[in-house]
Nucleic acid binder design. Structure first.
Lengths: 101, 101
DNA sequence: AGATCGATATCGATTATCGATATTATAAAA
DNA sequence: TTTTATAATATCGATAATCGATATCGATCT
């Protein structure tokens, strides 16, 4: 474990909010999407986070029947939208700070 | 715990490399500097990381006698410098990605 | 019904973190 | 010289997070 990979781990969670904002997703889709960006996360981390973010009001969950399969689709809420902008503002600060160097 | 605070946790570790690059520091100074930026980290996390980063060759450690007190000063190495630029490049990607939204 | 498939949930083991306490080294005070 | 204080680093047990394997669930196919 090094600082970069540790930093990426934190970014994964932020990305859950990021993606929810673009379009509703379900667990497996998100996991694969994150993997495409070299973000590995295990089910045992992902699903508890989805539940936590739903319970905290950042995400809304809706079960949908897709070709006979039940999928839980997660979408952004107003609180989640608000939180995204906090993340974005923080990321801007961080970026500027690092760019000075 | 929410995505932003989780993300910040990851940034704290990246900041160890970031600060080492500016000037050599010792543990207590770093802890206070991080705290000034609202980054709380406990000793039990900080010191193991300093040791780990030194063992991994990202930081070099030198003991100095400052007004009679022994302080361990940590400074960046070539490998650490290289790693910083990886973090920076990654942060740029992340920033661009978020700015599109 | 039984098998299979796609998806979500759970569980035990491992690892990381926290925060309180211990240790070390020096200097100043009594 | 022995205490006492102080600044810094290191350690340790308890808690929390993560991993990855496995279980479960519901729908469809044969």
């Amino acid at each position: 474990m090094n600082p970069l990979s540790r930093f990426k781990k934190g970014a994964i969670i932020a990305h859950i909010i990021y993606y929810a904002r673009k379009e509703p997703f379900y667990g497996v889709w998100l996991k694969e999407e994150l993997a495409r960006h070299d973000y590995k996360i295990s089910d045992g981390t992902l699903y508890p986070w989805l539940a936590r973010l739903t319970n905290s009001g950042y995400l809304a969950m809706e079960e949908k029947n897709v070709e006979g399969k039940i999928r839980k689709y997660y979408s952004i809420t107003d609180a989640g939208e608000d939180h995204f902008h906090k993340i974005k503002r923080y990321l801007e600060e961080l970026y500027k700070e690092y760019m000075e160097q």
